[in-house]
Amino acid sequence: MPETSIKSRPVYGTLAPQPGTRHILLADGDGAAAIVDLARAAPPEFFERAHIITAPAAGAMAVRAPLRALAPAVLDETDRLAAALSRLAEVLAGAGMGTRLYVAGTEGTIGQAMQVALDAGVELGAIATEHRGSRARRVQCAHCKTFIDEVTTQPVACSGCGLMLFVRDHYSRRLAAFQGVCVDAEEPGSAPTPEEVFT
């Protein structure tokens, strides 16, 4: 679990069943186990009203079987995070109040799923999150606005404009990204060598 430093840094919890008329659960490969853990505390009828959407590596057999064993009302197995997110948007478009969203996985997965949900009118209070897996970050370059996925180093080179970016702890839910700001603007060429820190 990433440590909390500043107030815009997201804080994640542990998934637990909430009162609700419909439960939508989205997980990537790392997050699937969090759904299995939630199931231990869930009342028997919970999965009768549950819709599980899995992203990339969750397609691997090791996590697929335990999720199928939960017998949710609907199980959507997708092969890309983008596909899982568009499936989530479709499901939410027809959803009603009482819908609860549970997201588990890397920060990139959580952030982007929350972004889709907030756009659909889901309130923050109806979203539960649990961080599992890598601490890689999604970063937006402050200068050219490119989003860089799976950032593990500090600093990181922008894939859009090439500037070396310092990844600040400052996080935007709206953009689902941390802020990356040129690290050597005052003395171009003085950027430190990137080190693996978000792993």
């Binding site: 107030k7 815009s8 840094r9 402050a142 935007s172 709206r174």
Partner: peptide, 12 residues
């Protein structure tokens, strides 16, 4: 970047 943040978040 800060658009949509609450008071505590944008002052973070």
């Amino acid at each position: 970047f800060d658009l949509g943040m609450n008071f505590m978040e944008w002052h973070a």
